[in-house]
């Protein structure tokens, strides 16, 4: 960790006027500063900014500084979102980590986190050891020869499934972006992970009210029962009428460089009767575009199974 200057602006305007790196819960930034992966000279503690509030009166509206634990526990938060939050990290981390910070968390790729190793995301042009290295945790979707790191957030997968949008503010003004469009696949610039502009701050997350949002769930598959990133996860939401699927939203985590919507799966589900046959058929469309690496080829099978499981749990009611 390099010496740095720490200031705590009291207003959003003050925060935007000061060049520096925003610090919210600190669960990503401080971690990576200790590893010398991030070496900001000026850190802006934004925890005093008035970016709070959880409102479920019209969809879900959450201030960017709300903590993961508080959102998960709030009544009326859509099930896929609260489950994704509760299955993330540990209670201690959820108590600290903000929803805005969660969406911007950096990858867990072992090479990104180790400054002794090359990494195109950390040092553009230095190379990607994961392509031919330890890549069991890495992506089968959205990767490039320059980067195969997965996006680590659970709740971002649920939010992308539920068509969430985020409000961004900078000195140039405010804008609202669909979360699905916010993330950038690595291509040949893996250091660019999203559409965030210099000095821009996430102020709010909004999930629209839709019939399928309340009928949603999130299934996370991992190597231990808790406190572990997803090997594979699925957020699913269904609008079911008279036993038939009217509309569907499906997104996957742990398998892609960004939270990964699966439109082919959604399309397959639409109009089908609720049931295992429909689910298996739809899940089989999930991996058509998958690009498998030596260590993660099993994720093609696992993703299909995870989607089926999530759809079964959603429609059979209750969780086992």
């Amino acid at each position: 960790m390099r010496p740095f200057e720490l200031t705590a602006p009291a207003t959003v305007d003050a925060a935007l006027a000061t060049p520096g790196t925003f610090l919210a819960g600190g669960t990503t930034l401080v971690d990576l500063m200790k590893l010398n992966v991030l070496t900001p000279q000026h850190v802006l503690d934004i925890n005093e900014l008035p970016l709070r509030g959880i409102d479920t009166s019209a969809g879900l509206r959450v201030g960017a500084l709300e903590r993961m634990a508080d959102i998960a526990a709030h009544p009326g938060v859509y099930p896929a979102i609260s489950r994704a939050l509760l299955l993330s990290a540990s209670q201690q981390l959820r108590n600290m980590a903000s929803i805005g910070g969660n969406l911007l968390q950096r990858t867990r790729c072992t090479y990104f986190r180790d400054v002794a190793m090359p990494c195109n995301k950390r040092e553009p042009g230095s190379g990607c050891p994961a392509v031919n290295g330890a890549n069991r945790m890495h992506a089968i979707f959205g990767a490039s020869e320059h980067c195969v790191a997965t996006h680590a957030s659970d709740v971002a997968v649920a939010l992308v499934a539920l068509d969430a949008e985020i409000r961004l503010v900078s000195e140039d003004g405010e804008r609202v972006v669909a979360l699905r469009d916010f993330y950038r696949q690595p291509g040949d610039t893996p250091d660019v992970e999203n559409d965030l502009r210099p000095g821009e701050l996430i102020t709010e997350v909004h999930v629209p009210r839709k019939d399928w949002a309340a009928h949603s769930t999130y299934v996370k598959v991992r190597d231990r029962q808790s406190y572990e990133f997803a090997l594979c996860s699925a957020a699913v939401a269904l609008d079911v009428q008279d036993g038939r699927i009217v509309d569907a939203r499906v997104a996957a985590g742990g398998v892609a460089t960004v939270p990964w919507r699966l439109p082919a799966v959604e399309e397959s589900l639409r109009g089908k009767p609720v049931g295992l046959a429909s689910f298996e058929e739809a899940a089989s469309k999930a991996v058509d575009t998958a690009e498998l690496l030596a260590g993660n080829a099993f994720k093609a099978s696992l993703l299909k199974r995870t989607i089926v499981r999530a759809l079964l749990e959603l429609t059979e009611g209750g969780l086992r």
Binding site: T110, G133, A134, R224, Q225, Y227, E228
Partner: peptide, 29 residues
């Protein structure tokens, strides 16, 4: 049986040398 393995790369570097990557059971396991 179900969690622990220190994974060495061809270059001899351990790929999972922290407690997020080197899994030991948590209470829930």
């Amino acid at each position: 049986a179900l969690h622990e393995a220190l994974e060495f790369e061809a270059g001899g570097r351990p790929a999972n040398a922290d407690l997020a990557g080197y899994l030991v059971p948590v209470n829930a396991d």
